[in-house]
Design a protein around this nucleic acid. Structure first.
Length: 852
DNA sequence: ATGAAAGAAGTTGCTTTGTGTACG
DNA sequence: GCGTACACTTTGCAACTTCTTTCA
């Protein structure tokens, strides 16, 4: 297993530092320069880079030199590139010498003295530590482990003192449970640098990606179940009874337009009714709690360990709470919409509870929760935050205090730059905040996204269409475009919008609301992953009504049209993985355009040839014209053969298979020819004639796919088949089904044999014979084993019997406490005693039953 | 503010038919 | 000397992806 990037430092330190290289370097430094002074280290490093060029050329001056040389390039390399990267860092000039920076690495932490330049170097022990802790070096070569061990004994202490690295601490805390006593001190110091920290490149391993995908799916299922439950509550009779009286008679009349009205009249009436009810609801319902919001990944353990729901989060409710809320009319805006849905349903309006699910993303990119700040003060106690005495969100200690209260339309919490409002549950140490006027009670601006998570869809029966209604957040009706938050909204992200109908059926209506479904939204959905479409279809099937109603069909058409109306992306990036469009620049090595008919142009970058400032235009093609091309060899491995006379559709530079000499390579020049599937036909291997199986030069037969079995032949998969064929003297070929790549070489995987069809039964019979024989042998073995046990048992009984007859002075001889004959019921303890020493009676023919 | 380009670093995929030694 | 079992082998390159920085 190659060293996993998880444990490497990333981003700012960028260069390709393998742990072994680093540890090796340090090991070397320590070995040679025992003074261990920073200056000494530097000298060593310079020497290292100076020597670097010679390392490759010198054949073998002596072994030791060679070993050194191997270590040194990496070291100098690390250092050189480090400096290069640093230069581009945020305002941190590389001014001080490395030697200087190591000097101030001691326990006294001073933010001013902190030399970021050396962060990476100082990270080194951390890398090692985390690797050790995570056990990822299990399969490291021994030499490397030795170096690690050396480092452990020599330099761990001073490495800890060498400097302080927030990142390193993070990684340490993640991977090992060692002491973290320095953390609190450090955090204070590094707080001003918080902004630079999240920019560190984070890398997810494949396993982590898979895990994220799994969690994404699981989260989706949970959210669907959640909405499903809420939707069923919206049908609650008790809730209906509580809410229905709130609708005025007039509004009720509007909501139920008479069927003799014109199509237009009916929809107008419905809308007017909704408007009235919506206005009423807006006034009556109080938003006192926080609703659902976008889920973000926690970057560090701290978050998970210290996580607490914000004080104003809506507690998990039950149906009884829902009924109560229908009377008290306050709670989160989500609950408000759910009750609004119930209200409309109570009035007989066909209403869907619609939710924009906010699952954890599976994509590697995207915002995540910020690193947690230390918790110094306690969060406001929950009892202070009941509905009447709502938490003080304006107080100086409030995490929700906005920038002086005069921020933009969207109030940004003061600590916004520190990240997600989840972090708002954590209180920064109060850094000499000026005393403020006593907080005004009863004002509770909960910062939430200006876009809703829940809204309703109402059926326009006249047009057989669903339209969105949201009285609480956007205060809109029939404006589907008003619901999608911008990509920068950390609180709300639209990726799946699901609408639940009264009967519990749900439909995915994302395309009605997402403006760039294909270009952007889809990339956040499970459908963009292989097999994801099927998964989502299956998931939603659980909420389908089993058949397509007319209304469903109309809606499907509408959604497809909405998707089709989606304009072409305006930027190059959105064309990547677009389901309908493709750019030539994004074609993979083995992809080709079967038609060069362009469907548009996109401006991309500058046109260097034309006048300055003009954009270059790039052709857009249809995705369906993009085909996969493969080499003749690759097709052969799929059981296909390039048809005679076909010309390659593309030629790609050939890969160098092994270290051929350069000259040979240069004259070669030619690339690999690629063909599309249309240019190939099913491969037919030479038929079997007179029982003779054709073989390749290795004496076997390629059976990558079943269709490659030659005519007149059969592939027998049993592993004993070749032995059977040999026994029968039948001509056969081992079936090569693939390769296994272990180590340097691929090893052929042979599975079964290919023989002429007429021998199939014969081979089967012989194999059956083998199996019978095998079974018989096993049975015999078993019999022998059992008899052995019997023998041992009987011998033991005899011994016991004899011992029991011994007269012991002062004791009455035991009378008749032993069966004189072996008994069928074997006492357990006897058995144990005997088995405790297997070999003792092995060759004792003292009596009993001896097999054969 | 946004997106393109460039560059860097990390990941993925292709590779495609063993070898040496001990022991019976 | 031969056959068999078993331990050891655990690439390296290029394409591709992702992220950062810079610039317009």
């Amino acid at each position: 297993m190659p060293p996993k990037s998880r444990d490497r430092r990333k981003g700012q330190n960028g260069p390709d530092i393998s742990t072994e290289e680093i540890i090796g370097s340090i090991g070397f430094v320590d070995l040679e320069d025992t003074s261990d002074s920073p200056a000494g280290r530097m000298r060593t490093r310079r020497r290292a880079s100076a020597r670097q060029p010679t390392t490759r050329r010198a054949p073998i001056p002596d072994v030791y030199q060679d070993m050194l040389a191997e270590v040194l390039p990496a070291q100098s390399d690390v250092f050189e590139r480090l400096l290069k990267r640093r230069k581009t860092g945020k305002g941190k000039e590389v001014t001080s010498s490395p030697a200087h920076s190591t000097e101030n690495g001691d326990e006294e932490v001073d933010a001013e003295d902190e030399d970021v330049q050396f962060e990476d170097v100082l990270d080194i022990p951390e890398i090692k530590a985390s690797r050790n802790a995570s056990g990822s070096d299990d399969d490291e070569p021994e030499a490397k482990q030795q170096q690690t061990a050396y480092r452990d004994s020599e330099g761990d202490d001073d490495s800890a003192e060498e400097g302080f690295d927030w990142d390193a601490l993070q990684s340490r805390s993640r991977f090992q449970d060692g002491p973290k006593d320095l953390e609190l001190t450090l955090i204070k110091k590094t707080l001003p640098d918080q902004k630079t920290l999240p920019s560190r490149r984070k890398v997810t391993t494949q396993a982590e990606k898979n895990l994220r995908l799994e969690i994404h799916r699981m989260h989706l299922l949970c959210l669907l179940a959640h909405v499903n439950i809420r939707n069923s509550w919206c049908n609650d009779a008790e809730v209906h009874a509580a809410l229905k009286p709130m609708i005025s008679k007039k509004a009720l009349a509007y909501l139920r337009p008479k069927s003799d009205l014109s199509q237009f009249g009916r929809i107008e009436s419905l809308k007017r009714g909704l408007e009235q009810v919506g206005n009423m609801w807006k006034i009556q319902y109080k938003i006192t709690k926080r609703g659902l919001r976008r889920s973000l990944w926690a970057e560090d353990e701290e978050h998970i360990q210290n996580y607490e729901l914000p004080a104003d989060a809506e507690p998990a409710t039950e149906r009884s709470d829902f009924r109560t809320a229908a009377k008290t009319l306050n709670g989160s805006r989500d609950l408000g919409i759910q009750l609004f849905c119930a209200l409309l349903r109570s009035a007989g309006v066909e209403t869907r509870l619609t939710c924009s699910l906010q699952p954890l993303t599976f994509a590697g990119s995207g915002p995540s929760m910020p690193r947690s700040a230390p918790r110094v003060t306690k969060v406001p106690s929950p009892e202070s935050s009941n509905e009447e005495d709502a938490i003080d969100l304006h107080g100086s200690s409030s995490p929700f205090r906005s920038n002086g209260g005069q921020g933009p339309a969207v109030p940004i919490p003061a600590r916004r730059r520190l990240g997600h409002p989840h972090a708002a549950a954590y209180h920064l140490p109060d850094m000499a905040a000026p005393p403020r006027a006593p907080p005004k009670p009863k004002t509770k601006p909960i910062y939430e996204s200006p876009y809703p998570v829940y809204w309703v869809e109402v059926l326009d029966e006249a047009h057989q269409k669903w339209f969105p209604v949201d009285p609480l957040v956007t205060d809109t009706m029939s404006k589907p475009r008003a619901f999608e938050p911008p990509a920068a909204d950390r609180e709300n992200n639209m990726s799946y919008v699901v609408a639940f109908e009264e009967d519990g059926c749900a439909r995915d209506v994302t395309r009605r609301y997402a403006k760039t479904y294909n270009a952007k939204t889809r990339k956040n959905r499970v459908e963009s992953i292989k097999g994801g479409e099927k998964w989502w279809r299956r998931t939603m099937r659980a909420y389908s009504r089993g058949w397509q109603s007319d209304l469903d069909q109309i809606e499907d058409t509408e959604l497809s049209q909405a998707e089709a109306r989606e304009p072409m992306p305006k930027n190059v990036a959105d064309f990547k993985d677009h389901p309908y469009y493709a750019l030539e620049r994004h074609l993979k090595r083995n992809e080709i355009l079967t038609s060069t008919r362009e469907v548009g142009k996109v401006a991309a970058g500058k046109d260097t040839s034309g006048p300055p400032g003009r954009k270059k235009l790039e052709s857009i093609y249809r995705r369906r014209d993009v085909k996969i091309a493969k080499s003749a060899d690759a097709w052969y491995r799929l059981g296909r053969e390039v048809k005679i006379g076909e010309q390659p559709v593309k030629v790609v530079p050939a890969r160098r298979t092994n270290d051929e000499d350069i000259g040979d390579d240069a004259e070669e020049g030619a690339g690999t020819n690629l063909y599309t599937e249309d240019q190939t036909a099913l491969y037919e291997s030479p038929p079997i004639v007179n029982g003779r199986v054709p073989k390749n030069s290795f004496g076997n037969l390629d059976i990558y796919v079943p269709s490659m079995v030659p005519k007149g032949g059969v592939h027998i998969h049993y592993p004993e088949a070749s032995r059977a064929a040999r026994l029968l003297g039948i001509d056969y070929a081992d079936a090569l089904t693939g390769f296994e790549f272990r180590g340097r070489h691929g090893t052929a995987i042979l599975k079964g044999i290919v023989v002429a069809t007429e021998y199939y039964e014969g081979i089967e019979a012989v194999i059956q014979g083998f199996r019978d024989e095998e079974a018989r042998a096993q049975e015999e073995m078993r019999t022998i084993t059992v008899l052995k046990f019997w023998k041992r048992f009987l011998v033991s009984l005899r011994i016991k019997e004899r011992i029991d007859t011994y007269d012991i002075e002062g004791e009455d001889p035991p009378v008749g406490d032993l069966p004189s004959q072996p008994h069928k019921d074997i006492p357990d303890e006897e058995d144990e005693v005997i088995q405790s020493d297997d070999s003792r009676y092995e060759d004792d023919y003292g009596g009993g039953f001896i097999p054969e």
